[in-house]
């Protein structure tokens, strides 16, 4: 299912920043005193929050922690396995 160019680009940006946070999280688990990694983590958290806020405002909820109009927006398709991610891009 196609979700449109702009929405797909924003979703991929969120996926990328969230992945950076997963990677930093694992690194910090075994290097909890690394200040440089900690700074990066904290910086990315802010960027991530802003991007997700924008996505949920413009398109659709990412989690169920979402104030929705009626009907309940969470059940809207596509689900992640249905999205056409396309080759290339960011």
């Amino acid at each position: 299912m196609d979700i449109g160019r702009e929405r797909l680009e924003l979703l991929k940006e969120i996926m990328a920043i969230d992945f950076s946070l997963v990677e930093l999280n694992l690194y910090l688990d075994t290097h909890p005193l690394d200040q440089r990694a900690q700074r990066l983590q904290n910086e990315y958290v802010t960027i991530c929050k802003d991007l997700k806020e924008k996505y949920e405002e413009d398109y659709a909820p990412l989690t169920h922690v979402y104030a929705s109009e009626c009907p309940w927006g969470w059940i809207e398709e596509p689900w992640p396995w249905e999205i056409n991610y396309e080759m290339g891009g960011i």
């Binding site: 996926m15 992945f19 909820p61």
Partner: peptide, 10 residues
């Protein structure tokens, strides 16, 4: 908590 996205585009 489920997030409506994949970790990497499949």
């Amino acid at each position: 908590i489920y997030e409506k996205k994949l970790q990497y585009p499949a």
